[in-house]
């Protein structure tokens, strides 16, 4: 029976090689698979030692995938409107929604992703892997690190509880002190045309961030879109660049 399936047209149209048992089929397994071909066919033995890489970059990526899967599922049950947001989370929590653990996994994976990406950066730094020819990929990585934290920050508001609202209030209050662009930032008071200030509480950086002068309905919607669409798309594109450049810059780093 198994033999019949393996020799049939359906099986062979999906898998273009035999079971990966020898060098040739093992190479084919990586080459002919769109996901696995992120990898080269062969890598340096010392480069994939767990004590060298800590697997932290890979885990960061895996946690990102976990966030996407759980996040998309959560979007079915969550409405980014002040009247509903809190109750929707409450419903998830009390298990009205069948998959009661979704929100927990989403939140803890987010925290884990932040820790993993910090440790990934530490590993890359301590092995000197940012040095030529990998300088640019390090830069991409730094941007991904910042975006990861922004993803977590924008997601923090969505439960719309006291913890969320006030954490975002504290965080976004910083924006009003932006030099020149915040109404309590140095230099902003010089930006005046005919006695009318350009930068005030209703026009400064914080206002642009929150779409209002306080964390309200507009901020919730804005953070929702940033969290679910805008930042994930940018992150996905940059991850593609990041992985592509690993290959192009010579694979996992090692002594020259």
């Amino acid at each position: 029976m198994i033999k019949w399936i393996r020799e049939g047209q359906v099986w062979n149209s999906i898998f273009r090689h035999g079971i990966p048992r020898d060098r040739r089929t093992r190479a084919m397994a990586v080459l002919s698979n769109v996901f696995l071909h992120l990898h080269p066919v062969a890598v340096r033995k010392s480069g994939i030692r767990l004590s060298f890489t800590w697997c932290m970059g890979g885990l960061t990526f895996f946690l990102f995938l976990v966030e996407i899967v759980t996040g998309v599922l959560l979007m079915f049950y969550y409405r980014p409107v002040v009247e509903y947001a809190y109750n929707d989370i409450q419903a998830m929590r009390s298990g009205v929604v069948s998959m009661g653990l979704l929100r927990e996994i989403h939140r803890w994976a987010a925290h884990a992703m932040i820790i993993a990406i910090w440790l990934h950066m530490l590993r890359v730094f301590l092995t000197g892997s940012y040095k030529p020819p990998r300088e640019f990929n390090w830069t991409v990585g730094v941007i991904l690190l910042v975006l990861t934290m922004l993803l977590s920050f924008t997601g923090y508001l969505l439960p719309w509880d006291q913890l969320a609202m006030w954490a975002i209030t504290v965080g976004s209050n910083m924006a009003r002190a932006t030099p020149l662009a915040g109404h309590e930032g140095p230099g902003a008071s010089f930006l005046v045309i005919d006695g009318v200030p350009l930068i005030h509480a209703g026009s400064d950086a914080r206002f642009q961030l929150l779409a209002g002068t306080f964390v309200g309905p507009n901020a919730l919607l804005r953070f929702y879109v940033l969290h679910c669409v805008f930042i994930p798309v940018v992150v996905t594109v940059l991850i593609a660049v990041h992985f592509w450049r690993i290959r192009k810059d010579g694979g996992i780093s090692g002594p020259l």
Binding site: A42, K45, S46, P255
Partner: peptide, 25 residues
């Protein structure tokens, strides 16, 4: 980390490590 020419195949050596890491995580 020496041994730049010492290469192993990604399948199974790296793919399995990654797979175990994913499961543990």
């Amino acid at each position: 980390e020496a041994g730049a020419d010492d290469k192993v195949l990604v399948w199974p050596d790296l793919v399995y490590t990654e797979f175990i890491a994913l499961i543990l995580c």
